[in-house]
Amino acid sequence: KLLSSIEQACDICRLKKLKCSKEKPKCAKCLKNNWECRYSPKTKRSPLTRAHLTEVESRLERLE
């Protein structure tokens, strides 16, 4: 599967780190437990900047 097509777990399953069936409108866990089942939009991760990478590398060197 391509990364862009990976389905996201519902908010509660993601928060509780449960295996989500990803069914809509309610996944199996939410249906069974009568929880409100919501699927928040995916958040875009910002790409690493060179400055951040350099900072992490220098912190790693100090720890070694």
Rank of each mutant, 00 (worst) to 15 (best):
K1A: 08
K1E: 07
L2R: 13
L2N: 13
L2S: 13
L2I: 14
L3Y: 15
L3C: 13
S5F: 12
S5Y: 14
S5I: 14
I6R: 15
I6W: 04
E7A: 15
E7S: 14
E7G: 14
E7N: 15
E7H: 15
E7T: 15
A9M: 12
C10H: 10
C10G: 08
C10N: 00
C10L: 00
C10R: 01
C10F: 01
D11Q: 11
D11G: 07
D11H: 01
D11M: 04
I12S: 14
I12M: 15
I12E: 10
C13L: 06
C13V: 06
R14T: 04
R14K: 12
L15N: 14
L15F: 12
L15K: 14
K16E: 05
K16V: 04
K17F: 05
K17N: 04
K17D: 01
L18F: 01
L18K: 15
L18C: 15
K19C: 03
K19S: 01
K19P: 03
K19E: 06
K19A: 06
C20K: 06
C20G: 04
C20E: 00
C20F: 03
S21F: 07
S21H: 09
K22G: 00
K22H: 08
K22W: 00
E23S: 08
E23C: 08
E23N: 11
K24L: 14
K24Y: 06
K24P: 04
K24M: 13
P25R: 10
K26H: 09
K26I: 03
C27E: 08
C27W: 01
A28W: 06
A28Q: 12
A28Y: 12
K29P: 01
K29Q: 04
C30R: 04
C30L: 05
L31H: 11
K32G: 05
K32Q: 05
K32I: 04
K32M: 03
N33I: 06
N33M: 14
N33W: 14
N33P: 08
N33V: 02
N33E: 04
N34G: 14
N34P: 02
W35K: 13
W35F: 13
W35H: 12
W35G: 11
E36W: 05
E36I: 12
E36L: 09
E36R: 00
E36A: 09
E36T: 10
C37Y: 03
C37F: 08
C37D: 01
C37L: 00
R38K: 14
R38H: 13
R38A: 13
R38E: 07
R38M: 08
R38S: 09
Y39A: 03
S40N: 05
S40Y: 06
S40V: 13
S40L: 07
P41E: 11
P41L: 05
P41C: 09
P41M: 09
P41F: 07
K42M: 01
K42L: 06
K42H: 07
K42Y: 01
T43I: 11
T43L: 13
K44D: 01
K44M: 10
K44V: 08
K44N: 01
R45G: 04
R45Q: 06
R45H: 01
S46E: 14
S46K: 00
S46T: 15
P47E: 09
L48Q: 02
L48S: 04
L48R: 02
L48V: 06
L48H: 02
L48Y: 06
L48W: 06
T49A: 03
T49V: 06
T49W: 01
R50S: 08
R50D: 02
H52N: 07
L53W: 02
L53I: 00
L53P: 01
T54H: 04
T54I: 07
T54V: 08
T54W: 07
T54Y: 05
E55A: 13
E55V: 08
E55N: 12
V56E: 00
V56H: 07
E57L: 02
E57D: 01
E57A: 02
S58Q: 13
S58V: 10
S58L: 14
S58M: 13
S58K: 15
S58E: 10
R59I: 00
R59F: 01
R59H: 10
R59G: 06
R59A: 06
R59V: 04
L60H: 05
L60A: 09
L60P: 03
E61S: 13
E61N: 13
E61A: 14
R62K: 15
R62D: 07
L63K: 13
L63R: 11
L63N: 11
L63I: 00
L63E: 04
L63W: 12
L63V: 10
E64N: 14
E64S: 05
